[in-house]
């Protein structure tokens, strides 16, 4: 149903806000996109910045980790993974696996698990690798 998919894409543009739609070409090339929409440099950078913020959290900051991840990072990781799967399915898979591990960490009852720091780093690396695969440069955590 191409017409319906088109209409949904339009709605997604509205839903996700103007930042996600029809702007910002990189060196004349359209930004990467997939089934879940366009990956803009700003949104990708915001997701990586969120991961960098998560890196600095203490074990007792489970709520803060959840807040940053689900409000600022999680959805964009899905969009990046969907855009990456066309060009580099391995990078897409690695990103989704690392994301799943982070979700598992964030389901902890009281404090962040011991593996949290390593898992944030792994997810950050997987995100940056996926963004490299779609040739969308963003800054890492420095």
């Amino acid at each position: 149903m191409p017409a319906r998919v088109g209409s949904v894409a339009l709605v997604l543009c509205i839903v996700l806000g103007a930042v996600a739609c029809g702007r910002s070409k990189l060196n004349g090339k359209p930004p990467p996109s997939g089934a879940l929409g366009v990956v803009t440099q700003e949104d990708a950078q915001a997701a990586v910045d969120g991961l960098c913020r998560m890196r600095g959290l203490q074990p007792n900051q489970l709520d803060q980790a959840n807040g940053i991840f689900y409000d600022r990072v999680h959805e964009e990781l899905h969009v990046i993974a969907a855009a990456t799967e066309k060009d580099d399915r391995v990078a897409s898979a690695n990103l989704l696996v690392a994301k799943e591990q982070m979700e598992s960490d964030l389901r902890a009852k009281d404090v962040l698990p011991e593996s949290y720091g390593t898992d944030v780093d792994t997810l950050t690396r997987a995100t940056l690798a996926a963004l490299r695969a779609v040739v969308l440069p963003v800054k890492g955590c420095g």
Binding site: Y70, S104, L106
Partner: peptide
């Protein structure tokens, strides 16, 4: 995706 711990963050 998954159940978060909530809490607002």
């Amino acid at each position: 995706c998954a159940s978060s711990g909530g809490g607002g963050g």
